[in-house]
Design a protein around this nucleic acid. Structure first.
Lengths: 338, 338
DNA sequence: TTGTAGGCGTTATCAA
DNA sequence: TTGATAACGCCTACAA
């Protein structure tokens, strides 16, 4: 099996140099010689050894993608989009599924270094415990693009969404429809997205003079179960909000399940605004009005930025791309009854 | 940055051999020497170069995972499970997202070979156009585990679900509830899963003497849009089935959307059995009764089989694991009205 | 246009 | 216990 350029060279009685040049379309080989080499290579089933090539060229055409949960459709959509861009340039993706486990994140990062990846696209783990690791990597020249979760103190390219205005606009939208009592299930407090989305919400609550008890705003930690429980608690009370905002897809799922179990009529008795655009939200009854992140553009942008950084090795100032979310109107929101 | 064992050796004035032994916990180094080396390695921020190591050992601790669509929750669940098992043994995953594109599949397979992966877990692309490629890989000693889509003619370990009995049992279940008019949206005709599930359905239809017009059984090609359209057509007619079976998660989504748009009351006017267990199926109204594949076990089994093949290099006879599906009863099925 | 030789960072063999 | 040396497969000055 293992055919090397040496084998090709031997069987053609030429040097490995010539073979290498021929195979890589480098100048310095006659046309007929190149043809001869190509033919023999095919005949012997030659496949380049990327390890050996990588050692010489210090380029592996491999990129690490670090995320917290591949089962989250948000991430699988972004990955799919990253893959499309990178595959076109013959790069491979190593998937690092780290959960919210900083230790695992660190280990994966080291693994990526040892595998000599050309770059890393990462949504750093929530609490930002490994910032120093990222900083060190960058200092040593690793190309890194951050997405989803931005970390100001890291000098890397980044792609995020305007989380704050996303929730701000959601409240504004509800306010326009006459809603004055609004609750929210937000995400992980220490995380960038969790923090920003909550902040946007609270700002809007203040600006629009929304009634919002402390009790109506709780952290579902971006998890379905937790969100479900909090939604149940908030919505079981007599004095409950007329609208509720969920701040990611799992949270939205939890809320919708709570609503269903409590037999609350949406949107007549309660308006719900979700976050992210999981496929189920359109078949749900009622279909969920939601804040949509452009996952496709996020992935494409991140991949393009990384490719740029890799292929033009000029250490530019970091690019920070901020994308807009949009509100997709479906059926889960209605004007306030009173 | 780039510290090598040479640097450690130099700064300690010892040989690289000793450094290597110390770092890899190999015998032949005194305890104190090992400590000294470890300390210096940490101090210099040494990270092993996996490329170089791989060249010597011809082991890369990298595994390729080839699937058709990472956005399909079925696959992301399986991947997540594979990752859990492989990460525990320090293997990395290269994700190959090939769609239903045989050319891309071939290219990825070649890329994996050139990267010297230790093994491949693959759900071969639907039409099975690259069987000869898989066969060649196996002949040359590549460790391969197939899942989801089995191909009899390939001598590789495999993990699949008993697709035929899955749909057979679904029909039987409906029959028990008095349903005698049943339709189905099935998958890609040429694919293993598409074929098997349809076959199970047709067998049951025959065995239980179900009424099933040709027109009620159509291929949604495992795609939501196509399935939606066919469902609309089947269900718009006056003479329509009292129950319908969808044969994967996207198809189920299409059917549920159709049902919703046609304003058909499920399960009163129509019973629906879905396939796969996407998260939305439980919040849907009504929640979808569905055939569940044990994605977790599928991934775990595939990863374990591969690990086994890699680590005990005995070319055993291939293991063929067939797992059972289960029917998860929720709200979309009711006894037949008449 | 073609070939020679050296080295990328490891590990494995064998000798000291 | 330690070390010198070769080799994995490829690329690339440089020389012929």
């Amino acid at each position: 099996m293992k055919t090397s350029i040496k084998d090709i060279a031997k069987s053609l009685d030429i040097s490995t140099t010539t073979v290498s040049k021929a195979l890589n379309n480098k100048p310095g080989v006659s046309h007929e010689m190149r043809m001869k080499v190509l033919k023999k290579a095919k005949e012997l089933g030659y496949v380049v050894n990327s390890l050996a090539r990588g050692m010489k060229t210090s380029k592996t055409f491999t990129v690490g993608v670090l995320i917290s949960d591949i089962k989250n459709p948000y991430f699988s959509e972004v990955i799919s989009s990253i893959e499309r861009v990178l595959y076109a340039k013959k790069y491979n993706l190593i998937i690092c599924n780290v959960g919210e486990n900083p230790g695992k994140e660190r280990e994966y990062l080291e693994l990526l270094v040892s595998k000599k990846v050309d770059g890393i696209i990462a949504a750093p783990s929530a609490e930002g415990q490994n910032l120093s690791v990222y900083r060190k990597l960058i200092r040593y020249g690793m190309k890194i693009v951050l997405f989803d979760r931005l970390v100001d103190s890291i000098q890397a390219d980044s792609v995020v969404v305007d989380n704050r205005s996303a929730t701000y606009e959601a409240v504004k939208y509800l306010d326009n429809l006459g809603h004055k009592k609004i609750g929210a299930i937000y995400g992980i407090e220490g995380s960038y997205t969790g923090h920003e989305r909550l902040k946007g919400f609270l700002e809007a609550v203040k600006d629009f003079k929304i009634e919002c008890h402390n009790d109506w705003v709780r952290s579902g930690e971006f998890k379905e179960e937790k969100s479900y429980k909090h939604a149940i608690e908030i919505l079981s009370k007599k004095d409950r909000p007329g609208a509720i905002i969920a701040m990611n897809n799992f949270t939205t799922l939890g809320v919708m399940r709570a609503v269903k179990d409590l037999n609350i009529k949406v949107p007549d008795e309660l308006s719900v605004i979700g976050f992210d655009n999981a496929e189920w939200m359109k078949v749900c009854s009622p279909a969920v009005t939601t804040v949509v992140q452009p996952t496709d553009v996020i992935g494409m942008t991140a991949a393009t930025l990384l490719l740029d950084a890799i292929e033009n090795d000029v250490p530019n100032l970091p690019h920070h791309v901020v994308l807009k979310t949009s509100l997709l109107e479906r059926e889960s929101v209605a004007p306030s009854g009173k």
